[in-house]
């Protein structure tokens, strides 16, 4: 396998919803270099989330190749994709980042449960969670409280960052994580996320319709431009 400098590569991608829906995603080439922070801007409904779902292997493209860290995920079986996702991708959403009835720590460890802890002990991941928590300003008693219901939005988002990082991913996919935050909190959130990713050598691929935050990124892409079907 040829070792490239790209953490993510999309080639000749074509995606259509199976139902009668005019939406089409056609991307000839999209590449993200290792350790880079890239933001993809697009209006709402332009297919940003759909693209992230394709990259994470939830959706299957009609045509094309998606490579993550030199693994061609479009060639994997759906079972392999599920495992690949937990082991290599961290994901942060705009909303609904936590399952309220689970404890914060269980929320964080969810990817580890599905990757069966990769032969490490659960205590290893608990310590890592506590460690990451300390860096992000989440106290241990917050982390290990019974239910995540009572967490503030800021705490929820930091829990989401810890969960995205817990399994040592190669890249973090983020779907408009800042659109619910005011300007000050956006900056705070992005700084935290970037700090952590820098420490752990993780690339970031964020999609958003918010062009006020582009200055924090190494690269800015426009979906309208790269989607040839639009």
């Amino acid at each position: 396998m040829s070792i490239t400098n790209n953490i993510l590569e999309v080639n000749n991608l074509l995606f259509k919803w199976r139902k009668t829906n005019n939406f089409k995603l056609k991307i000839n080439k999209l590449a993200i270099k290792k350790k880079k922070r890239v933001i993809l801007l697009g209006a709402s409904g332009s297919g940003k989330s759909t693209l992230l779902n394709l990259i994470s292997g939830i959706l299957e493209p009609n045509k094309g190749i998606i490579k993550i860290n030199d693994t061609c995920i479009t060639a994997l079986s759906s079972k392999q994709k599920d495992l690949f996702r937990t082991e290599n991708l961290g994901v942060i959403f705009q909303q609904f980042n936590i399952i309220e009835y689970l404890s914060p720590i269980t929320n964080i460890l969810l990817p580890c449960y599905f990757s069966l802890f990769k032969n490490k002990k659960i205590s290893f991941y608990r310590e890592r969670a506590a460690d990451l928590g300390k860096k992000l300003g989440i106290e241990k008693d917050v982390l290990f409280q019974k239910k995540a219901k009572n967490l503030s939005v800021g705490q929820q988002q930091r829990i989401a960052i810890i969960r995205a990082l817990i399994n040592f991913p190669k890249i973090i996919l983020a779907d408009e994580p800042t659109s619910a935050l005011d300007y000050k909190n956006k900056e705070k959130f992005l700084n935290l996320l970037f700090d952590m990713c820098e420490q752990e050598n993780i690339s970031i691929f964020m999609v958003s319709h918010d062009n006020l935050i582009t200055k924090y990124f190494d690269d800015v892409l426009l979906l309208e431009k790269i989607n040839e079907a639009s």
Binding site: S56, I58, S78, K79, D82, L83, R85, T86, V91, F93, Q95, F96, N97, I99, L110, P111, Y113, F114, S115, R163
Partner: peptide, 16 residues
Amino acid sequence: RKEMALLRIVGASPKN
């Protein structure tokens, strides 16, 4: 649905 989608993203298969 959102809860299930979150589980999917963190690695759950449709079978799970």
